[in-house]
Simulated scan of single mutants.
Amino acid sequence: MDKTWQDMSQIQPQVMTMLQNSITKNRVAHAYIFEGEKGSGKQDISKTFAKSLLCEALTAGYKPCEQCRNCKRISSGNHPDVHLIERDGLSIKKEQIKSLQEEFSKKSVEADRKVYMIADADKMSVGAANSLLKFLEEPSADTVAILMTEQLQRILPTILSRCQVISFKPLSPENVKRKLIEQDLDPQLASVISHLTQNVEAGIELSHDEWFVQAQKIVVKLYEVLKQNSLKALLYLQTDWFSHFKEREQVDRGLDLLLLIYKDLLYIQLDKKDLVVFQSKLKEFETHALHLSPRRLAEHMGYILEAKRKLMSNTNPQLLMEQLVLNLQEGS
């Protein structure tokens, strides 16, 4: 189901405000570049914006009604005046841009405007980019271009200079969590993943990764053993941790998960229990948070962040984890 203007305003409020102003003040540019990370909503917002430009019954002066013929045809992807160009193989070919130009040289079939959207605009071949540049140099009053990219630096400067660049922020954990739950992920799992990635697709992939599912259990268990004594924790590293977290990237992921637990303790101390990621452990964590001073908690989080830094500077992961366990157990 297509996202409404309201849906997209929750995901990218600044972007939607800019687009709203361009419509209500009659300052719609002839070409835009939507740039931002994968999964930040560029294509959904492109489609929503196209609806606003062609809608027959706008509400509040800028929101598409979602009910008129134009809105419905854009939703279904078969409006004759709205075109989406995607990669043909590894790149966008010159022929695709030529075909678009021929299509747009005709009069609008049904609407006052024509809109074309180019996904992965940084993947245009040299020929395609040059053809598009000619198109942009002679803008038609009724044509709006929307180029989408995750790699703004790869767009030709001559194309950049002819477009209004709108930057999309990475999705917030709340938005990632909501989207993951919409994909039928368990809320607890969605909550954890949303703090590890800002990309919904990567989050879904992570949820199906058996290694990651097991990793969460091992990290929580390490934390629980730490509450007992350092000797048990050191033994647990030998029996369970090292056999699972073998690569540096895996250790880094484990440290991220461990940091989330200590952040949960911080949220509890700040009386923000609704922000706790490991909700299933809330009662247990509440008890722990009572017995840990804010200063010690800050030190513990510092130890984990320092371990992450050392890990990337080629420190032996095994020695690093053993030292971290001793630091976290001491005075906890």
Rank of each mutant, 00 (worst) to 15 (best):
D2K: 14
W5L: 04
I11H: 01
P13C: 07
T17S: 03
Q20N: 09
Q20V: 00
N21Y: 02
Y32H: 06
G39P: 00
K42Q: 11
Q43S: 12
K47Q: 13
L53A: 06
A60Q: 15
P64N: 07
C65R: 03
C71G: 04
S76G: 12
S76D: 13
D81G: 09
V82E: 00
L84Y: 09
I85F: 15
K107Y: 13
V109M: 14
D112C: 06
Y116V: 05
V126I: 15
N130H: 14
P139M: 06
D142W: 02
T143M: 08
V144H: 02
M148T: 01
V165M: 10
L171F: 06
K177R: 15
R178N: 11
R178W: 07
Q188S: 14
A190C: 12
I193G: 01
I193W: 02
S194H: 04
H195V: 08
V200C: 08
W211M: 12
V213P: 00
A215N: 09
K217W: 12
Y223D: 08
S230W: 05
A233S: 15
Y236S: 10
D240Q: 14
H244V: 12
F245Q: 04
L258A: 08
K263F: 12
D264T: 07
D274I: 09
V276C: 12
L282P: 06
K283Y: 11
A289N: 05
H291L: 13
L292R: 07
E299Q: 15
G302N: 11
K308M: 11
L311F: 08
M312T: 07
L320T: 03
M321N: 06
E322P: 03
L328F: 05
